[in-house]
Design a protein around this nucleic acid. Structure first.
Lengths: 344, 344
DNA sequence: CCGGTCGATGTTGACGTCAACATCCGGCGG
DNA sequence: CCGCCGGATGTTGACGTCAACATCGACCGG
């Protein structure tokens, strides 16, 4: 397709293999052998070539190698709102795992997690010579409408894509069950839910699981309250919930909203956990040092990141077709001080 | 699964310009013209080529273009501990600004911010065909020992590199002065400092500025207390500080340590701000919703990121030499509820 | 001393793209 | 009716690298 004009070439991109060859008085192929670490080069020759490389500051042109090899040593990562806790930790793990395997990472941050934006980003990245693609949180995208270039290995951190693309996802269902059951076990009659935005897939999984659990336990199901993941939205919804005397336990879809909620509750004179118990989700580093320390569902973002890379590299290296693969990374409940039995 | 039958002589990389040309019944050069948006192609021909591209799922091979043009449309980013607030927000801004200019980002996360690791990462990235390099927080690296490939445009988010590389940095000096002066203005006799690790350049700038300010104001200078940026380290140091009755005001080098510190103080029965005032640094999103909401020095990571890209692209596109450039991004003090006049 | 062998090194071509130049065609002025 | 002109399209070669094959030379056994 028609593409934007390239930024004007940077001109000479340094010395080439030929320059080194000339300086060392050998053929370019010998230089190539040295630079790829081939065995069959006399030590004296190798020394001479290395010296020439050093003198000229030579380093191999990756574009040429990529062209020759048909592979780029690069994986593309599409993320949304990179600065968010889960995203940045997952990306960090992906970058780390990729490096351990000798790959670099090309990163794109999409404005919205919609099919259109993700598809566009995938197209952009595939122009950028990548060997595979990691999509972190496709959120509002649907398997049907998300298009990735044909033959491009892909992994998605979203279990809805099972059957379309290999997926790695935290076990949010179990995590949610644990959180809700924990609150019921403490004696709460029911559990309110401060959910993430409705266009987020993980948010919806948590809502659905929360509802199922309550229904399955024959408890009343309160109306869902919505935030947008931010602490501020948690604070705003908290002000409303604080006014409702029926609320004794709130399961929040992430820790930041939980933090905002807790503050709003305090400001309205409702103590945590004495009056209202609160559970978060994610276990971000600060959670333990909030007041009170937050009971939360821990997600292992680091493991998710490295599994994503595992699965992608299996496709890239072994040409495996893994569309049905699904790796579920366990979650666990970390009980701290924000939950307690209801009064009376 | 059986792997797909290889088209003769081709690996995983998709159809080439030649395949499209054959299908459309034109020469490869005409396809190239269509794909670069050249004007001189008859509309009917263009249509035929576009249809062929579509049918084959063609997209240009970036490695070949990069080789041809000597430019890659990619900038390299070296970060340390990507999941940290400042880093991830800066990287996000860099990615966003880069995309707006038509560049993608290649990301490396180094294990340690030392000269050796950063130099190695820079070498690795330069093998990866990048047009320029952004180094976020070189921390323990020194200008003398940090080596980047010759002719490679570089920007560093660290003012110590002025004179070696163009730099963009938050105005930490002013931020620190504001924080310390704010506490002195409230009537505190002096201000303690919970610093970051000694091998971090920003941490040292804050220490030095804090000390200078106290000396300049003829106040006693307490011993520096060291954390490692984590909330846990703030908590641990907070337990010690809580035992010292002379402590009435603490300036913390980041918000996370401040959060840990506040919690430790509470646990030891010292209230914030009634007994001890606390100031943080960064203004991370949760700061406002801690209890009490934290007075802190706000850094504009987003602006830092976009300025880094500005400065880098000026070098890449215009071949400008900017080694003496330095952009200082303002910081400001956000006063919330964790600071007050000392009792009595 | 000679053919043979094997390791070191050189030569050629191809990866996909695109700029420069070459060619081809229709139309138009003379 | 011819030749010229300009736009559309085709052909060639080069970007830097490396695999495959070619060559070269020294050493070895007979």
């Amino acid at each position: 397709m028609t593409e934007t004009v390239q930024a004007p070439g940077r001109g000479r991109s340094g010395p080439s293999i030929a320059d080194v060859a000339q300086l060392a008085g050998v053929s370019s192929q010998t230089v190539s052998r040295v630079s790829t670490g081939a065995e069959n080069v006399r030590p004296a020759t190798r020394e001479r070539v290395l010296a020439a490389m050093d003198e000229l500051g030579y380093s191999p042109n990756h574009a040429a190698r990529a062209l020759r090899y048909g592979s780029f040593g690069t994986i593309g990562v599409i993320a949304h709102r990179l600065a968010r806790t889960g995203e940045s930790r997952t990306v960090e793990a992906v970058v780390e795992a990729a490096r351990a395997e000798g790959y670099t990472v090309s990163l794109v941050d999409v404005q919205s997690p919609s099919s259109d934006d993700v598809t566009a980003a995938a197209a952009r990245l595939s122009h950028q010579s990548i060997d595979g693609l990691v999509i972190i949180r496709a959120e509002t995208a649907t398997p049907a409408s998300l298009a990735v270039p044909p033959r491009m290995p892909v992994v998605v951190s979203d279990s809805r894509f099972v059957g379309h693309h290999p997926a790695v996802a935290a076990d949010q269902v179990t995590g949610t069950h644990l959180a809700v059951q924990h609150l019921l076990d403490l004696g709460h009659r029911t559990v309110h839910h401060l959910a993430g935005p409705a266009d987020s897939a993980p948010a919806e999984i948590r809502v659905d699981t929360w509802r199922e659990h309550l229904v399955g336990s024959a408890r009343p199901v309160p109306a869902v309250v919505r935030g947008d993941w931010s602490a501020r939205s948690g604070y705003e919804q908290g002000r409303l919930l604080a006014a409702d005397p029926d609320v004794t336990a709130v399961f929040c879809a992430n820790d930041e909203m939980a933090a905002g909620l807790v503050r709003a509750l305090y400001e309205q004179g409702r103590r945590v956990p004495e009056d209202i118990s609160v559970v978060g989700f994610d276990d971000i580093p600060l959670t333990e040092f909030l007041w009170p320390p937050l009971t939360t569902v821990q997600q292992d973002f680091h493991l998710i990141g490295s599994r994503l890379v595992d699965l992608l590299l299996r496709q890239i290296r072994d040409r495996e077709t893994l569309t049905d693969s699904r790796i579920v990374v366990p979650t666990r409940l970390v009980v701290r001080a924000s939950t307690a039995a209801p009064r009376g």
